[in-house]
Nucleic acid binder design. Sequence first.
DNA 1: ACTATATTTAGATGTTTATCTAAATATCGA
DNA 2: TCGATATTTAGATAAACATCTAAATATAGT
Lengths: 89, 89
Amino acid sequence: MNDTFKALSDPTRRQIIQLLKERDLSAGEIANHFSISKPSISHHLNILKNARLIQDERQGQSIVYSLNTTVIQEALGWFLNMIGSKGEQ
Amino acid sequence: MNDTFKALSDPTRRQIIQLLKERDLSAGEIANHFSISKPSISHHLNILKNARLIQDERQGQSIVYSLNTTVIQEALGWFLNMIGSKGEQ
DNA sequence: ACTATATTTAGATGTTTATCTAAATATCGA
DNA sequence: TCGATATTTAGATAAACATCTAAATATAGT
């Protein structure tokens, strides 16, 4: 759970997740949306992957990333719990 | 929004929010739940306050903190959007 | 006004993090 | 197998962050 929140604490990584919400993208396609270097994007992708927020699959020369909504749902649960009635859970 | 996620990325701060979900607490009462120093807790409270996740009110010698669920609801919205159907919004 | 209690501010320190460039690895097509 | 393309790994650096102790501020009660 901590890995999830840590991963989501960076704006670049949240934007990557938003991009992947639209459609699966290769590492290069993701990098093209940003003005930071490819190695930096690769680093962010790795953090998201370790948090299991995204998954990757090689397709020929490219590595294609996709969203894992399961983990996002878990984080959503945390927020729902915080908003639930006092003392509940 | 970034302040919200940054604030929630620390486990101590998430725990503080969970404590305040149960009931309002003074800074000292909050600090008693942790093994870190009072100034460190004060620092965390300040970060949560700047993110508007909590609010404070002086009551005599104490300063009592309470949750602001409005901002939590905004963050919840981000997650709901991520889970919504592809391309939506 | 003085003392005790509650909390924050100031300043220092070690760790983590985001970023970069350069080099390494992997795949594809000719 | 060679050259081009795609991505990651390695190593360095500067900024951000969590924590500490000591000192400052604020309130309350006597």
